[in-house]
Write a protein that binds this DNA or RNA. Sequence first.
DNA 1: TCAGGTGTATGATCTATATCATAAATTTAA
DNA 2: TTAAATTTATGATATAGATCATACACCTGA
Lengths: 232, 232
Amino acid sequence: MKKDKQGCDTQTCMVCRLCMKEWLPAVEAGSQHFTYRKGQELFKEGDAVEGIFFIYKGSVKVHKHWDGEKELIIRFAKKGDIVGHRGIGTEAVYPVTATALEQVTVCYFDITFWEASLKVNHQLLYELMLFYARELQESERKMRNLAHMPVKGRIAQALLSLEKKFGRNENGFIDFALSRQDLASYIGATYETTFRMLQEMIQEHLIVMSGKEIAVADETKLLRLCELPANK
Amino acid sequence: MKKDKQGCDTQTCMVCRLCMKEWLPAVEAGSQHFTYRKGQELFKEGDAVEGIFFIYKGSVKVHKHWDGEKELIIRFAKKGDIVGHRGIGTEAVYPVTATALEQVTVCYFDITFWEASLKVNHQLLYELMLFYARELQESERKMRNLAHMPVKGRIAQALLSLEKKFGRNENGFIDFALSRQDLASYIGATYETTFRMLQEMIQEHLIVMSGKEIAVADETKLLRLCELPANK
DNA sequence: TCAGGTGTATGATCTATATCATAAATTTAA
DNA sequence: TTAAATTTATGATATAGATCATACACCTGA
């Protein structure tokens, strides 16, 4: 992690967008900027919560672990997204790890400053509450999928939501490069199973792959997979 | 559902506990009381969100469905708990169903009144935000468990957290009667598998069962199951 | 007091997915 | 520019847990 002295554009992250204009100088004073190399951790499951991060550039994965090696990716965060908010509340430690997937720049707020902001800025607090509510819905939907939807359906679901979040690049591929292993961890399956399912989905013309890149080829059929078990 | 004219004690639920005293008359005016028989739904996945519920008496299950029959119980709520807050935020429909597990009395707030309260009452909003944050942590922990923890571990986890939430009755059993089917839906497994695992756990003296009632017999070993795969 | 639903109990399969093993290809670091 | 490490690729095998089938116990209301 490298400390970065240059300030932010006070436009990208939620704090800047939502707080009253009068609060902006305080935000600038209370924030720090850091950069991380690919693979570096912004914080780790179990670390004491010291602050909250806003992604300013690049993308990170937020993940949990069990029994050493087994990983589950909770979420991918990109420019403008909050990371580290899961640490707020009951416990004083992060329940997740955040790892840079590429070169990442963040805007960081000390937890004390952050909580003070929430006390002062009602609008910010309200937006944050809504954000948590949406995250909760999303999390519970994923939980149900994990429990009942077969792997192929979960992949379909994941690809559709990744496309929605990251958009497409000029060639129509999802504008987000993730490894097969990360996709597997994201849907809660092993690399091998995920790989085989992707192959099947190519055969069935549901998706197109070119190297690391993936494109949705038949949205309707993918959506159907999200609603019904694979067979019929 | 039956409308109930008697007021609440303005003590049980979060709104009453947290709002300023000056706001209490408004709360009383804005709330309604309903009762439900066992099995009745307070609201259903897909229903338009019209209000928020606080359990005043009895317990409910909050559950999601997939492909018709397959159920996943997200959470059990008891006296004092909020239900229906998942509807707030992005979409105008409840993402879950809430069903009474026994005779239930609720304190109900119209969504308009609720949102007005949040705008006015900063402390309430702050507590609600913290509540969402805790729920999110819990949900993501359960999600990881669903992805990586074997059924037996998930049962261990579930029993420990149910014991924590509902306490023990005079005989040492978890003070909450739930059917095996509901336990199965709660941990995201089938009834049969859950049943067999419970039998094994009795053999291993991890738990004790008497009819519907379940008691934790060896907390240490149960905790171990939550940390490591079943074998070693 | 009977009947039909709901929950409990248990055995016999089946199968989706994990695990193990191995190798080529690609990326990263040195 | 080579070596090490990671990622991709694919087959063989194992297994946890689902599915199917059947029966009995026990509420609950008619």
